[in-house]
Design a binder for these strands. Sequence first.
DNA 1: GTAATTATTTAACATATGTAAAATATTTTC
DNA 2: GAAAATATTTTACATATGTTAAATAATTAC
Lengths: 187, 187
Amino acid sequence: MIELLTYLNQIQSLSDKSEQALVSICNEIIVKKGKDLHPIGNTCRNIYFIKKGFLRIYYFKDYTDVTESFEFENAIVARADSLFNSNPSKKGIQAIEDSELVAINSAQLFKLYDEFPDIERLFRKIFENAYVETVNRIESLQFHTAEERYANLLDQSKNIIQRVPLKYIASYLGITQVSLSRIRAKR
Amino acid sequence: MIELLTYLNQIQSLSDKSEQALVSICNEIIVKKGKDLHPIGNTCRNIYFIKKGFLRIYYFKDYTDVTESFEFENAIVARADSLFNSNPSKKGIQAIEDSELVAINSAQLFKLYDEFPDIERLFRKIFENAYVETVNRIESLQFHTAEERYANLLDQSKNIIQRVPLKYIASYLGITQVSLSRIRAKR
DNA sequence: GTAATTATTTAACATATGTAAAATATTTTC
DNA sequence: GAAAATATTTTACATATGTTAAATAATTAC
């Protein structure tokens, strides 16, 4: 849990009591490569911290597997719409590599908000940051060509190409695998 | 201010003290059609509530005017990245029609968070909702054709076509004006 | 109300991306 | 390590979208 608390305290410093309360609603989870941390159709009942490994959020559009996002080590991941609105999620979270996570039970977490304002503040900031990131992602999808988006992805995280099958990258960039192959062939 | 308080209490009920504190940091603003509520380059120091009118968030990409989003009556609008990180914003907020707004001073608002947890909770929920919406928008940009995105926009808000110049709609959909004209000609 | 400005559509052509199918390459399973 | 399964690239062709320029329509300013 140390990795988690270190990560969280960087965003918002927590009192000892708050830390204890948080830890008490956490569980460590291991997910094997290719397995679902959160299957499509389930309502999201946890917020996850990725200690180790690499995952993706995905769904099916007309029977085609689509990667919405990649989720790296040392970060929080959750199915936002399902989490906040208690809907069954159309999207799943799948491990691309064997991964170690901490699951924070969301129902219990939301209860802690009443007693520990620093915990509520912490997660307010976490999702504010996530919000800003998605707005930037919109900009990228709206006004960069597929080629630019591919180049940006390489810049952001150079080892992503080694770690992720290209078919996942193609749908993440909003293009087909064939199109991605062409872009790669050009370079 | 009544419209604002009605709107906010639907999201999170506020105590009388909290309402008073909130109102004390608000100012009513009128922006004429075509004018900037928030000019490009300024750091965002307010969260706005749109009482009446219609605005857009825009920026320039390679000297081309790009509409990132449309903002309707009875909703909150803010430049998220600039607001949370105190960066000068690359994006501006412009009135498409004469608009009446309430400006909530963000520095003062963030101070109120310490004293009034219900206010912090309110804005936590507001930005959580905004986050979920942007995730949905990503899905739309990633896997719908321009034609589908145009159809969806018509469904969502049928009067948008009457109220917004098409050049703004084109860039919002991530396509050129010419391409939008072609899509419209097909129907 | 007319002239000037701005917005929208259309045309012609270039480029990017999609689709389907086949050819290779790589990884996994036993 | 060979067979099977999966991933990636390539080819050929279809379609969508971009670019530039011109034509038309609508709006704004005086």
